[in-house]
Design a protein around this nucleic acid. Structure first.
Length: 98
DNA sequence: GTGTTGACCACAG
DNA sequence: GCTGTGGCCAACA
């Protein structure tokens, strides 16, 4: 079980219509400071269709880079029922409760 | 083994 | 609110 695999595993647990932050995901993996490494893993994302990497947002619910483009990411989230507030996600509502 | 880069985060000014 | 700095981890040259 590699670090990135852990990330994918946790991310897969995020239900549709919900999101998670890199920080929270990193914390769930066990390294609260490895948010950067998490992003790196998402960027590679060998499990592209299996892992909903578009549900991962910044610590403030802000959309940070996305391999396929931020616009596409937002579209997917919206399609899942996630409303965006000024290009950001309301973590109070959409952030999954671990 | 070292240095750089990247979908980050927190803190200080 | 924005910029700069430091720190973290993983992957690559």
């Amino acid at each position: 079980m590699s670090f990135n695999e852990e990330c994918y595993s946790i991310l897969r647990k995020v239900p549709r219509g919900k999101v998670i932050t890199y920080s929270e995901l990193a914390r769930a993996v066990g390294s609260p400071k490895s948010a950067r490494a998490v992003g790196n893993a998402m960027n590679k994302n060998p499990y592209a269709p299996r892992v909903p990497c578009h549900r991962v947002v910044g610590a403030n619910g802000e959309m940070v880079g996305f391999a396929s483009g931020i616009a596409n990411k937002i579209k997917m989230l919206k399609r899942e029922g996630v409303e965006l507030k000024n290009g950001k996600v309301d973590l109070k509502i959409y952030k999954v409760n671990l």
